[in-house]
Design a protein around this nucleic acid. Structure first.
Length: 585
RNA sequence: GGUCCCAUAGCUCAGCAGGAUAGAGCGCAGGAUUCCUAAUCCUGAGGCCGAUGGUUCGAAUCCAUCUGGGAUCACCA
């Protein structure tokens, strides 16, 4: 039950009864009509812009129309007051009974409250992380990992059928470099003094155990093989080891993918799947052989004008056509992406979401072009660009260089500050906004971290139930008819809390449609704030406290309110991927 | 030079597919604990929403231009 869609329907029904609307029914549409919580609570519980939106097509003034609409709404028994304000807003105040029934309905739905069908079962694929399997995940991967994971959770809650996917870039030259780096560690493990790791290879210690494992398994046999023979063996081993490490890192951050898709599988059998995908594009008329204009701005020194196989992406919205096959006959990275996209398309997704770092901004247009060309406009592809995270320690920026192996890993951050803190920090900001992540702030002053604030609210809810069992030793708090007791909730402060809970479904839908999980993080913070405020009112006004050992009925009703708050907090925290603790001491 | 993101309180940021008097946290000043965990709450000070035009009954929000920050530009992956 969604208060706002409920009243949207009621307002539209009321409009249909108005003569002026009936007369010009074909000329007006209700699309721009909104029903929302007023900015200022003193205005009422629900506000609509109906009169302002419809006045013009109906040839009347907003205030006059508002009065008529207000009159039509007055007969609704759940509405206690309708007023017209400002330029023509209609403010509606709801009856106690309505709030009580709303609370009752929330409790009946339990943890299902807030679930939505706006996704309408559409199949969505959210691809995120997709870190190269050449080393442990570093802190830069954090944000995309968390945002992607939370977005997928959110969309699932909003009625999409979601697949969480990881694209393993296990083909290409960086894997050759990885293999050579591991091979060096292998020789080292055999006792050879390899000296310093040459530049151009990955110097990290994390490759040492991989080399040792190879030494144990193969002894000196690899050493005596020509490159082309040991290469595939070492690659295989290295990729498996790196992916195992990455999966552990993801696990530590509470990120779980459904599908790990290997780029290599596109290249097997003479790159059969890439060829098929390019053929498909060719068949649809998007491929030609030709040359590209030289890059604008600084001309690279080794620029040569060569004929290549190109994707005519400019016809589907791109700035420049994109090469599919290099002049040496091998496929570009993008060619593999074409095949990968086609694979997803063939798996039947209606929506594809790529969560990428801001440094991949230049890739967006060609992906969109690709989606248009392959799916002929049927697939909705969106790229969520996460701006970069700047890391600070004690106020000083932390410098990182992957080349020197001197970087902070995701694991280090999670181990130091905890997965909940990291996740909430990453979500407590619009993803298109750069983010400063200060270790000192998140660890030493952990009270400042908003996740604790929300979790504390949940722990307090649980504490109320513990208190109830103490006050009423014979009470079985698990089997109470909380929904049935909601009619005793009538204090304005309590109803206000119900009003906040009523916003939850609306937030879920808006956040899912806008693909902005941060909105949910802000909402549960806000809800926690309402709850803390109400809790503290019990100090000044003991009659407002949840547990009243002289009034069992009222206590049960208020337990219902607490249950509803806890339930929404749980749902919200679950979507952000953070814990809802029973207590925090 | 092209493209993308950003500019809102001293600092860090929200602002819901244009709406009423622009919000929160931190910091600052003051207050609340014989009472369900004070990891909480309450009160106050603090703003020309980067600039200029435009669309509209109405703009922090949409459009254009400009300024100032960040990212990116390839037969790389």
């Amino acid at each position: 039950m969604n208060l706002f869609t409920d009243f949207e329907n009621r307002i539209k029904n009321a409009l249909e009864t108005i003569d002026l609307v009936k007369e010009k029914r074909s000329e007006v549409d209700f699309d721009r009509l909104t029903v929302e919580p007023p900015r200022d609570q003193s205005h009422g519980d629900v506000a609509t812009n109906a009169a302002m939106v419809l006045a013009k097509p109906l040839g009347t003034s907003p205030r006059a129309l508002a009065d008529v609409i207000a009159g039509a709404l007055k007969s609704d028994p759940d509405i206690t007051e309708v007023s017209v304000a400002g330029p023509g807003f209609i403010n509606i105040r709801l009856s106690k009974g309505y709030w009580q029934r709303l609370l009752s309905a929330m409790l009946q739905q339990g943890t299902g409250y807030g679930r939505s069908q706006v996704g309408a079962g559409r199949k969505a694929n959210v691809e995120y992380v997709s870190a190269n399997p050449t080393g442990p995940m570093h802190v830069g991967h954090c944000r995309g990992a968390v945002v992607g994971d939370a977005l997928a959770n959110l969309m699932g809650f909003a009625g999409y059928e979601v697949t969480k996917e990881y694209y393993i870039n296990d083909a290409g030259s960086q894997i050759d470099v990885l293999a050579r780096s591991v091979f060096l560690r292998y020789r080292e493990a055999l006792g050879e003094d390899v000296g310093a790791i040459p530049s151009g290879l990955y110097p990290g210690d994390y490759l040492v155990p991989v080399g040792q494992a190879l030494a144990e398994e193969y002894g000196t046999r690899l050493h005596n093989m020509p490159d082309e023979d040991w290469m595939p063996i070492v690659k295989e081993k290295a990729i498996d080891a790196m992916m195992a490490m990455i999966r552990e890192d993801l696990e530590a951050l509470n990120v779980h993918h459904d599908v790990f898709f290997s780029e290599r599988t596109l290249h097997v059998n003479g790159a059969q799947r890439i060829r098929t995908a390019i053929n498909d594009l060719t068949f649809k008329g998007h491929v030609y052989r030709g040359t590209l204009p030289p890059p604008k701005g600084q001309l690279p020194e080794d620029w040569e004008d060569r004929e290549q196989t190109l994707f005519r992406s400019t016809e589907v919205g791109d700035d420049i056509d994109r090469p599919l096959i290099k002049s040496d006959g091998s496929y570009t990275y993008f060619a593999a992406d074409v095949a990968y996209f086609k694979d997803k398309y063939d798996r039947g997704y209606d929506e594809m979401i790529y969560v990428l770092g801001a440094d991949h901004g230049g890739y967006v247009k060609r992906l969109e072009a690709l989606a248009r060309a392959v799916s002929e406009g049927k697939v909705k592809l969106t790229v969520l660009l996460c701006q970069l995270v700047k890391l600070y320690r004690n106020g000083e920026p932390v410098k990182m260089s992957k080349r020197s192996g001197d970087f902070i890993t995701l694991r280090e951050v999670v181990d130091e500050v905890g997965s909940d803190s990291v996740r909430f920090m990453m979500l407590y900001r619009k993803s298109s906004e750069p983010l400063d992540f200060d270790f000192a702030k998140v660890t030493e002053q952990s009270k400042d971290n908003p996740v604790f604030y929300v979790q504390y609210a949940h722990a307090r809810c649980m504490s109320v139930f513990r208190q109830a069992r103490e006050a009423f030793p014979d009470m079985d708090t698990d089997s109470l008819d909380l929904a049935g007791a909601a009619s005793l909730i009538e204090d304005p402060a309590e109803l206000q809390l119900v009003g906040k809970l009523a916003e939850f479904p609306r937030i879920i839908e808006a956040a899912a449609l806008a693909q902005e999980p941060h909105r949910l993080a802000f909402y549960i913070y806000d809800l926690a704030s309402f709850f803390h405020a109400h809790w503290n009112k019990g100090k000044e006004q003991p009659e407002l406290r949840f547990i009243n050992d002289k009034n069992r009925e009222l206590s049960v009703a208020r337990l219902g309110l607490v249950r509803a708050v806890a339930s929404v907090l749980q749902s919200g925290l679950a979507i952000t991927g953070t814990a809802a603790p029973e207590e925090m001491r």
